[in-house]
């Protein structure tokens, strides 16, 4: 090996290092924005659905961090994502309400079935079958666990053929909502005290665990927080005191207590 060979090798490597360093210097100035974008991205669902018009959640967060985009573009995240983004940008004093997923069905294995289903273990596959799937109820949990598999933190368990959300684990990413073909998973405020676990309106369910609109919860609620709207029981969280009386009086066990007093 000659000296000139060594010299050329050294020059070559130094030259490449120099070019790389120059490039790193050129692109290094937006390090701060990208660091900020990462914290902003935590406020987004992380679905990379691109409905905001950007390449993904991180690209959108980057655009927001650089002031190129508004905060209300995220469709799956909706109002919650907008508030979270605003909060992280330091524009809001109050921390926004945290949401958790809630499955509006208590039927599961005990709910009446029209036929036995023996296909792929995916809710979307069962839901496209004739009659909207093997269940008689059109808004019942199919129990095949697509939401549980989609959950990044393992907060959803399948208990007796119906999905149950572990509120301590749920981080509010709401992936399960977009996965459920029945649209029976709902985002409820973490502070909400009670919700009816049935998505049927106007008693449109043959299930023994579905709401039959008996109205007991409405009359028994002392705070007047429960009413029937569009054929379904709704809870006004602003008035609810969290006494849990609705859950006690519900004869079908539809009402579920979400937190203890």
């Amino acid at each position: 090996m000659s000296l000139s060979g060594l010299l050329i090798a050294a020059l070559l490597l130094c030259g490449m290092a120099g070019v790389l360093a120059a490039l790193a210097l050129l692109s290094g100035r937006d390090e701060q924005a990208s660091a900020r974008a990462e914290t902003l991205a935590e406020a987004l669902p992380g679905l990379d659905c691109t409905r905001c018009g950007h390449a993904g959640c991180l690209a959108y967060a980057m655009a927001v961090a650089e002031g190129r985009a508004e905060t209300d573009r995220c469709q799956p995240g909706g109002e919650q994502s907008r508030l979270e983004l605003e909060h992280r940008l330091g524009r809001y004093e109050v921390e926004p309400e945290k949401y958790v997923a809630f499955v509006r069905c208590a039927g599961g294995l005990a709910a009446p079935q029209r036929y036995a289903y023996d296909g792929p273990a995916a809710c979307a596959a069962a839901a496209i079958l004739p009659g909207g799937g093997p269940m008689e109820c059109r808004v019942g949990c199919l129990g095949l666990g697509s939401c549980a598999r989609s959950c990044p933190v393992g907060a959803i368990d399948m208990v007796d053929g119906v999905a149950r959300v572990n509120r301590d684990k749920c981080n509010g990413c709401m992936r399960c909502i977009s996965v459920c073909p029945r649209h029976i998973i709902e985002a409820v405020p973490r502070s909400a005290a009670a919700r009816p676990a049935c998505a049927a309106s106007w008693m449109a369910t043959p299930c023994d665990f579905g709401c039959d609109l008996c109205g007991k919860c409405v009359t028994e609620c002392r705070a007047g927080a429960i009413s029937i709207k569009d054929g379904a029981v709704t809870v006004d969280d602003a008035r609810c005191t969290g006494c849990g009386r609705c859950a006690d009086v519900c004869e079908r066990g539809v009402f579920q207590r979400l937190r203890n007093r």
């Binding site: 090996m1 000139s4 090798a9 070559l12 490597l13 490449m16 790389l20 490039l23 692109s27």
Partner: peptide, 27 residues
């Protein structure tokens, strides 16, 4: 010049320069 032993390093270097340069140019 008998510098075949640098092939791997040069390949990595060229790839790095191209990808970083291309990214910067696109940006």
């Amino acid at each position: 010049r008998g510098l075949e032993y640098l092939r791997l390093l040069v390949s990595v270097g060229v790839l790095m320069i191209l990808s970083m340069g291309g990214e910067e140019l696109m940006r």
